[in-house]
């Protein structure tokens, strides 16, 4: 089974949940930007949540399916069609052989995930199938997808097959979609002036009192110079240290908010370098990292401080939602 890339679109890569365990060798974790959407997409087609998926940025990708294929499209609120008909999101969909799936514009959000029953068949490198562009390895030939690429798909498991059989019974159009959905994982619906929750970082006290306050009082805008490495933020008031400090480079985490000398913070994301030397004013709570996957350049948001306990609680709750979805899919089929 294979998927043919008819049009690559703006920027699409193969990603899984990231490459863990090699950061001490300078290897970025990488992986999907919106973990909730990617995990949900995999679960909806009966995959393990960690299978490799296609991550599309904004618009324009077109895929042609060689055979009847069970897919799920999750993430941004995107206009997708299969055989010219509107394809519903956040649910299992059986697309018939020879049908082309076209991804149009994102009404809201920025990144869309396509999971395929069985998972994409690309080599494991250092324990992950994620594309790492800077190192030119991983994923599909270590690069973004190009028009004409053919992606192989692994054999699907029993759960995927049961989902597929149940949809096969639903008529003969270009596709058959399940009547239920998991769109409660969609964060794209809540993107107008969102609040991003953070824990203050170890260098927070090194900033001026005004900077400490304006981290939370001002509205930040996502800069056009944002990518999978990080989101650069622009605010009217720059963040300044009380006095210059020399900091040693040390390890960073996803969501670490670094402040370079220009005073515009950077939120480190999936393809971040493993270490950094700028002061860290805060760290985004894990539960809100996927919001940065869906914010576009020009979008605005505010930061809000929460406690360690609150951040952990939110994370535990969101994990519970994923576990519920996992149980629901295997119960239904």
């Amino acid at each position: 089974m294979s998927i043919n890339v008819i049009k690559s679109g703006l920027f699409a890569t193969v990603q899984d949940l990231g490459r863990h365990g090699s950061q001490k060798y300078g290897v970025s974790v990488g992986g999907v930007m919106d973990t909730g959407a990617a995990r949900a997409a995999n679960l909806l087609v009966g995959n393990k949540e960690s299978e490799a998926v296609i991550e599309m940025t904004l618009a324009g990708t077109e895929l042609w399916l060689e055979k009847d294929t069970l897919i799920a499209v999750c993430g941004a609120d995107i206009t997708a069609t299969a055989g010219g008909e509107r394809l519903p999101l956040w649910r299992p969909v059986l697309v018939r052989e020879g049908v082309t799936v076209t991804f149009g514009v994102c009404r809201s959000g920025c990144r869309t995930y396509v999971a395929v029953a069985g998972g994409l068949d690309v080599p494991d490198l250092l324990g992950s199938k994620s594309t790492y562009l800077r190192g030119a390895f991983g994923g599909f030939e270590g690069r973004a997808l190009k028009t004409g690429d053919v992606l192989r798909v692994k054999n699907e498991g029993q759960l995927s097959d049961r989902i597929k059989q149940s949809l096969l019974a639903k008529g003969n159009g270009s596709f058959a979609a399940a009547g239920w959905h998991a769109s409660h994982f969609a964060i794209a619906a809540h993107l107008s002036d969102p609040v991003i929750r953070v824990l203050t970082g170890s260098h927070y006290p090194l900033f001026t009192v005004e900077s400490q306050q304006s981290l939370f009082s001002q509205t930040f805008q996502i800069s056009v110079q944002s990518d999978r490495m990080g989101c650069r933020l622009e605010g009217s008031r720059k963040l300044k240290l009380s006095s210059p400090v020399e900091l040693l480079s040390e390890a960073v985490a996803v969501g670490t908010v670094q402040v370079p000398p220009d005073g515009n913070p950077i939120v480190l994301l999936a393809d971040r370098q493993t270490t950094g030397g700028y002061p860290r004013i805060a760290n985004v709570a894990s539960v809100d990292i996927p919001v940065f996957a869906q914010l576009k350049p020009g979008d605005r948001f505010r930061f809000e401080a929460i406690t360690q306990q609150e951040a952990e609680q939110l994370l535990v709750e969101s994990e519970r939602d994923i576990q519920i979805l996992k149980a629901a899919v295997s119960l239904k089929f």
């Binding site: 863990h20 365990g21 950061q23 001490k24 480079s249 040390e250 390890a251 960073v252 985490a253």
Partner: peptide
Amino acid sequence: ECVPSFAAIAVH
């Protein structure tokens, strides 16, 4: 995983 640097270790 543990990530060492000049004078620190991050434990993930």
